[in-house]
Each structure stands twice: as C-alpha cells, then as structure tokens.
Design a protein around this nucleic acid. Structure first.
Length: 287
DNA sequence: GTCCATGTTCTTTA
DNA sequence: CTAAAGAACATGGA
C-alpha cells in the first residue's frame, strides 16, 4: 500500500524525532516478521543510538551508531508510528508486532495486520538496495528508456517491478500513465522516445504532487503521527472506475493486468499498438 | 458466503 | 536456459 510518497512522508516526519535517539529496549510481540529469523533484534538494538532514517524505494532504512543497519518494509497494511508507551501490552492495538523504546520516552511501533511487511536486519555488510532500480525522482530519462527497452512486458507491469524503478506501486503507476497518456497494456519496449520522455516527466510530477499532499490514504495508510494523506482526493483515474475522466469526461475503465486492478481513460490513453487483438491472436489448438 | 485491497516472492509455464 | 504469467501469502472490510 504505501508507495514512495507515503514512505517518504513517514521518513521525513520521523527523521528529526529519531536521529540521535538512544534505544533503551526493544520488544518483539511476533517473531515471524523478522528476517533473518534467527537474529536477536532486541540484543542488537540495545543501547544503540540511531544515526539516521532514510528511504530507498519503499524501504525505511535505519542506521545505527555502530554502522549496522536494518530496514522496515510496510507491505500492504504496515504502519510505523511514534507514540507514548501503552500502560500494558494488552492495551496495544491488535497486530502490533514490534516496540522500540527510546530515551525521549516515546515508543516506535510497527503494526501490520496482513503481515506482508516486515523488519529486515542488514548488519554491517547488508545492502538495502540489492536488485532495486533507480529512484524515480532522480533517474534520467535515458535510464528509464534503457530499462524499458529491455522488456516486452506491458508498461503497467514493468513499472511495478522494483528492479526496474524503485518506489512506484499500483496507484502512482496508474496516475503516471494517465498523465503521460499511455495505455497500460502497451509493451514497454514499443514506447516511442516521445512517450518515454512524457512518462519520465509524469512520474516525477505525480510523485512530487503526492508528496506535497503527504500521500494517499485509501484505507490503512497513516503517517507516523497518525495523520492521513490527502492525495486520494486528487486521483484522476485510480479507484475511479465509471467516473468521468477529468480531461475528457469519458468514463474511467478498470481492467486487471498481472492480477492488479488498473484504471485508465480509454480515450486519453489509446492503445498505440494498432490491434492488441492482432498482436495476440486467438490461440489455436496445437497439432 | 463473495470479492477486493497502496506488495512481494515463490512456482509454473512458455 | 530465461522471461513472463500466476498463485500464494494473511487479514479485514464492503
């Protein structure tokens, strides 16, 4: 759920509150959210000072004074919040998995009902960005072009692949493709130079607008202080099936691509492949 | 009961 | 062999 704008909002909020803080104690209420499963996280964090908290793709990376680091991934429903400690553990909200008590009397909490997220210990040598593509806000158009030329997958699926570009998810891919006027089923390696230039710009603009509004809250996402994002009000296609396109009033369509719901305007985002039907002819019986 | 969900990874198929 | 498509993961809300 949380994509780059949501994760960045959390990191931006948390950084000034976490930097220089001493970790006094750590409590794991569930151990199956930790990777690798055999590390003793409470022992590794005890009396360590947090140097900084940063973002890479959708990962929240925390670096300690001994140069060890770990990251938290929020998956679909994860929350990372800073609050006053509960009187007892029974008072904690259901699905709270990790508590980190700080020397300013506050408590960092990881909460995740579906548990698609988790805590990943990297230690001194682990790298947070193995198999991750460039940061979309920093990538050059040529970089995007090179990545897209290397795959025949449809553009919607390609942009969701974190090894291609890191940080985009279902919302911002749909919104970016709409702004660039690209049909989501277009094979990535058939995009024109002009389309790639437009896409590169659209991705950055979309993410920057979302950042200004502190992300999109559809259901689960909250900032670390519990507040919601605002950007869902400005979505042009995502979750707007049947509603009029803000540009041409044609009803927004919803289709499923790679198992993910995909929203687009059939008029503003025409398929450039003249006949998608002809490109994938009806299957004939073999032999 | 059904379907759907802001994500990733493992398995199967081509 | 590799790339791509599909299934699986776990919970809750409509």
């Amino acid at each position: 759920m949380p994509e780059l704008p949501e994760v960045q909002t959390i990191v931006t909020t948390l950084h000034p509150q976490l930097r220089e803080r001493l970790i006094q104690s750590t409590r794991m209420l569930r151990t199956d959210i930790l990777q690798p499963p055999d590390v003793n996280l409470p022992a590794l964090l005890q009396n360590r000072r947090i140097i900084e908290i940063t973002r890479r793709g959708k990962k929240i990376v925390i670096r300690l004074d001994n140069l060890h680091q770990f990251f938290i991934h929020l998956g679909m429903t994860g929350r990372l919040t800073l609050e006053s400690p509960a009187a007892t553990e029974a008072d904690l909200p259901r699905h709270t998995h990790l508590l980190i008590n700080l020397d300013n009397g506050l408590q960092l909490r990881f909460h995740d009902p579906r548990r698609f997220g988790g805590v990943f210990w990297l230690g001194a040598d682990g790298q947070a960005d193995i198999a991750m593509g460039p940061e979309p806000l920093e990538m050059k158009t040529a970089e995007l072009a090179e990545k897209l030329a290397s795959t025949r997958r449809v553009i919607k699926s390609a942009l969701l692949d974190q090894s291609l570009v890191a940080g985009l998810g279902n919302i911002y891919v749909d919104e970016s493709l709409f702004q660039a006027r690209i049909h989501p089923l277009t094979p990535a390696n058939t995009l024109s130079r002009t389309q790639i230039t437009a896409l590169s710009r659209s991705i950055k603009q979309t993410l920057n607008r979302a950042l200004k509004h502190k992300g999109s809250t559809l259901r689960d996402y909250r900032n670390s202080d519990g507040t919601s994002g605002d950007f869902q009000k400005l979505h042009r296609v995502y979750d707007r099936k049947g509603k009029p396109c803000p540009r041409c009033r044609t009803p927004i369509e919803r289709i499923v691509i790679g198992g993910r719901s995909t929203h687009f305007c059939p008029n503003c985002q025409p398929s450039t492949i003249k006949s998608l039907a002809a490109a994938t002819p009806p299957r004939r019986n073999r032999q």
